[in-house]
Design a protein around this nucleic acid. Structure first.
Lengths: 238, 238
DNA sequence: ATCATCTTGATTGTCGACAATCGAAAAGAT
DNA sequence: ATCTTTTCGATTGTCGACAATCAAGATGAT
């Protein structure tokens, strides 16, 4: 076996999986607005697939929390409230803390290189100033840390939650506001892991995700307040 | 609205959901052995459903980790190794710790009653001596604690993991061995929650689930060792 | 006898058609 | 005018048939 073997795994993936992937991308990128309606037939036409196949893809996304199913009525892109954000933050914090602890336990040269590469990518993205790149790099670094934990199931559960969290970030300004500090924040996160400081890694991970979670929740509450106010303004004259 | 409304929700559930539920029961109860093969047509005949519907049910169980899909080949009941048990234990510990903390934060009279009822059920089951009842009561108490956290998503993720953990317990002797101490162990778990001791609840939950996790892993390693030895005995003469 | 190749049976992957159900608009009663 | 009932269009729920793929046994060469 040569190094070539890593090049092309011709990716023979079933159509429903492919459709799910495509849809997931459209949702987390914000191209499909939260709460918007999805119908099997329309999607089937767009993808050039049968309804059954599209249906399987939708089911997949339901288990990931990106789509909600309303029996005999339709499918909606998930619309997440501030309360949902709190749920997700708590979960994410817990899983990342676990990942950091496990990662610090089993850190080695290869793992260190992977983290440093992801961190470097984040630094570049931060200088670049493009928001979506920054978000990608941010999530990429976290995902690298989770992968380092060596716990496959942890990775699966984390992915579900991270994708939902990403719904908020898609087109919000939360990230931009914190862009200047994002690099040093993440340095604090990875430093104890790289040093193999198990307890420190867990604490740092908790601090990191709690902070970003609180920021998202605060942002959403603010946005929700504005919306209610503007509704009141309209309603009052009536 | 009267109290009657709570009586009959005529359970109009889609057939694939029903089939998934039935299959899940058969798997976690041990009626379907780990690693055994499942074919869509056979299941479709048994359930009196079409293949597509059965397929949807199987997909559901795949996302729950109870079934694995082998493309163009078949579906297997998940077969879990000692390594899988370690993964699951780590995850479960993390989620239960979170649940305990959140539960201790928001404990109230109703929540206290729910926990005490579940604990009482566990005590009765322990005196009764019937293993499956004890397992049910054990899992029921933990599930009550998770529900008390008020975090719906936490509940969903926990259920997935708990069901997989149950695969091990199905017909093993792990539970029996520890039956005598099970009641006091769980008292230590719920006591800080009932008192609203947030930090104590988290610590107790970690201690509790780490212990039971370690016991399961140890049991599986022992079983695995026996199996390898017996294989060697057979192989040696050849 | 051993290995490579081919064939074949079994199983999933995908599709289009029909049935069940829901929600909203239309029709009717008061 | 308001409320109830009915109708109807749209959408999902379910099904059976055909195509693609795989794994193991049969076949043949060496």
């Amino acid at each position: 076996m040569t190094g070539l073997s890593a090049l092309k795994a011709p990716k023979k993936v079933s159509l429903d999986r492919a459709a799910a992937e495509s849809l997931r991308g459209a949702i987390v990128s914000g191209a499909l607005e939260q709460g918007s309606r999805l119908t099997e037939v329309k999607l089937a036409e767009q993808f050039g697939l049968s309804r059954g196949t599209v249906r399987a893809a939708l089911q997949r996304l339901v288990t990931e929390g990106l789509v909600v199913q309303r029996p005999y009525s339709g499918w909606d892109v998930a619309a997440l409230s501030a309360e949902d954000a709190e749920e997700l933050s708590a979960l994410r914090s817990s899983l990342e803390a676990l990942a950091a602890r496990l990662g610090a336990e089993r850190i080695d040269a290869a793992g260190g290189r992977a983290i440093e590469a992801a961190f470097e990518a984040l630094r570049v993205a931060a200088e670049n100033g493009r928001v979506d790149e920054l978000v990608d790099a941010d999530m990429g670094l976290h995902r690298t840390l989770v992968a380092l934990s060596g716990n496959r199931r942890l990775g699966e559960h984390y992915d579900m939650i991270a994708n939902q969290v990403r719904l908020y970030i898609a087109s919000s300004t939360v990230v931009v506001k914190n862009a200047p500090t994002v690099v040093e924040r993440h340095f604090d996160l990875i430093d104890p892991v790289l040093r193999g400081d198990v307890a420190g890694a867990e604490i740092a991970a908790k601090a990191h995700s709690m902070r970003s979670g609180a920021e998202i929740v605060a942002y959403l509450r603010e946005k929700g307040r504005e919306k209610t106010e503007s509704l009141l303004e309209i309603r009052t004259p009536l």
